[in-house]
Write a protein that binds this DNA or RNA. Structure first.
Lengths: 213, 213
DNA sequence: ATAGCGTCCTGACAATCGTCAGGTGGGCCA
DNA sequence: TGGCCCACCTGACGATTGTCAGGACGCTAT
C-alpha cells in the first residue's frame, strides 16, 4: 500500500505507483520533480504552486508527472520525508552522548554545522503545517516529541538534572527552536554576521544549560 | 488612492471603496470579514482559503464582500496592518527607555505580557510572506529593521555597548525572534509550562545582555 | 524490417476559483 | 401612499485548477 523509506519508520505515507518499470528512471524523474517543487514551495507556498509550474520547472510533462507521483499532496509528503524526517537534528542527542566536550561546546559546534543545511527543511516544515492532513501533522509532531525526549535524556544525563524536570524539556524545545533562528530571520540578517550570531546564541545556551546543573 | 490607518505610516496600502455610504456599517462588515479571514488564514493558509469560505464564515454575501474589500489580497493587507503594523513590539524599545529596572527584568516582563497577545500576528506575518507582493514584503522587512534599530539604540544606551557593535544588532534580532517562540512551538508545549519557559528564556536573555556590558 | 513494449505527450475533463453585472427588496422621506 | 435610495443578493462570467484517458513515439530484440 505504501513504500517506506529506509529510516526507522514514522515518516509520511508515500503512494506506490507502478506505471513505469525502470526503477532508475523513476528515481531520476522523482528527483527532478521534488527538486523543482521544493524551490517553488519555498518561494510561493504549497497551495500557490500549480502542477503546471512544477512541470515547467522540472521538465516533466504534465501527464507524465502522474506516472511518478500520485498527486500534489504526495509531492509534499515525499519532500518532508526527504528533508524533515531524514534530517539529522536527532544527531544532537547522539552527539551529546558521544562527545566528552562540555555541553555548551557541543551545542555551539552543532549549530555552526547545521545552521544552513537545515534551512530548507525547517522552512518547508513550518510553513507546510496548514496544508497537511491531520494524520500527517500528527506524525510531524510525534517526531518532534521523540527528538525532544531523546535530547532531554542526554541533557539530564550530562547536567545532573532530573529528566522529569520540566526545565529540561523546555530547554530541549528551546534548543531546537534556536536551530530555526537562522532560516527564519535571514531575511533580515546580513552576511558576515554569522559568527556574531553564534557567539550570542552560544552565550544564551550556556546560561540555560548552567541553570540545569 | 489609498486609505491610511492612524499610525505613523509605512503600513500596507489599503484600497479605497465607496460603494457603501454608511461608514459605520463598512467598519462593522469589514470587522466581520477580517475576523473570519484571520481564523481561516491561520488554520489553512492564505492561498488555500477561498472567498466562498470567508463569506460563509463571516455571514457576508459573496457579491457584497466586494463592497467592503477590494480583493483577496486586500484582506491580507488589512489584516497585517491591523495585527502586525499596529503590534506593540516597538513598545519594547520604549519600555527600555522608560523603565529604570534592570534590562533583563524589563525584557522578562515584556515577554510575560506579550507572549500570547502577539500570537496571531506573528504566525500570520511569518506564514504570509510568500503570498505578498515584493513591495509589501519590503515594507514588512523595513518595519522589522526599524524596530531592531530602535531596540539596538536603547540596548546600547542601557548596557554601555556601542550601537554599531554587530552584537547589539544580533541580540536585538534575537530578542524579537524569542517573542515568536511561544506561537511557533505551541503545537508542542503543553499548558502550565509557561513559567518554566519564561524562566529559561529569561536566563538566556540575561546572558546575552551581560555579554554586551 | 517488423513486432512489441515501455515512455512520453496531446488534449481535454469536471470542478472550482476570484470577481462582478444587474436585479431585488425594504426602509425612509415627502 | 408613493417614490427613491441604498444595501443585499442571485446567478453567472472567464480563467485556472488537479487530474488523466488514450494515442504517438522510439527503442530493443528478433
Amino acid at each position: 500500500m505504501a513504500e517506506r523509506a529506509g529510516s526507522e519508520g514514522g515518516d509520511l505515507a508515500e503512494a506506490r505507483i507502478d506505471a513505469i518499470r525502470d526503477a532508475g528512471l523513476v528515481e531520476t524523474r522523482r528527483a527532478q520533480i521534488l527538486d523543482a517543487s521544493l524551490q517553488l514551495f519555498l518561494k510561493k507556498g504549497y497551495a500557490a504552486v500549480t502542477i503546471r509550474e512544477i512541470c515547467a520547472a522540472s521538465g516533466v510533462n504534465q501527464a507524465s508527472l502522474y506516472d511518478y507521483i500520485a498527486n500534489k499532496q504526495d509531492i509534499l509528503r515525499r519532500l518532508l520525508n526527504r528533508l524533515w524526517f531524514a534530517r539529522d537534528i536527532e544527531g544532537l542527542a547522539d552527539r551529546l552522548a558521544a562527545d566528552p566536550a562540555p555541553v555548551s561546546e557541543v551545542l555551539r559546534a552543532y549549530y555552526a554545522e547545521n545552521w544552513k543545511t537545515n534551512r530548507d527543511a525547517i522552512l518547508l516544515a513550518y510553513r507546510s503545517v496548514p496544508h497537511l492532513t491531520p494524520e500527517d501533522r500528527k506524525l510531524l509532531r510525534e517526531r518532534e516529541e521523540r527528538v525532544i525526549r531523546e535530547l532531554s535524556a542526554r541533557l539530564a544525563e550530562r547536567t545532573g538534572a532530573l529528566e522529569e524536570d520540566p526545565r529540561v524539556r523546555t530547554v530541549s524545545n528551546f534548543l531546537i527552536y534556536l536551530n530555526a533562528f537562522g532560516p527564519f530571520r535571514d531575511w533580515l540578517m546580513r552576511d558576515g554576521e554569522e559568527d556574531v550570531m553564534l557567539e550570542m546564541v552560544g552565550a544564551a545556551v550556556d546560561a540555560m544549560v548552567a541553570r540545569l546543573g
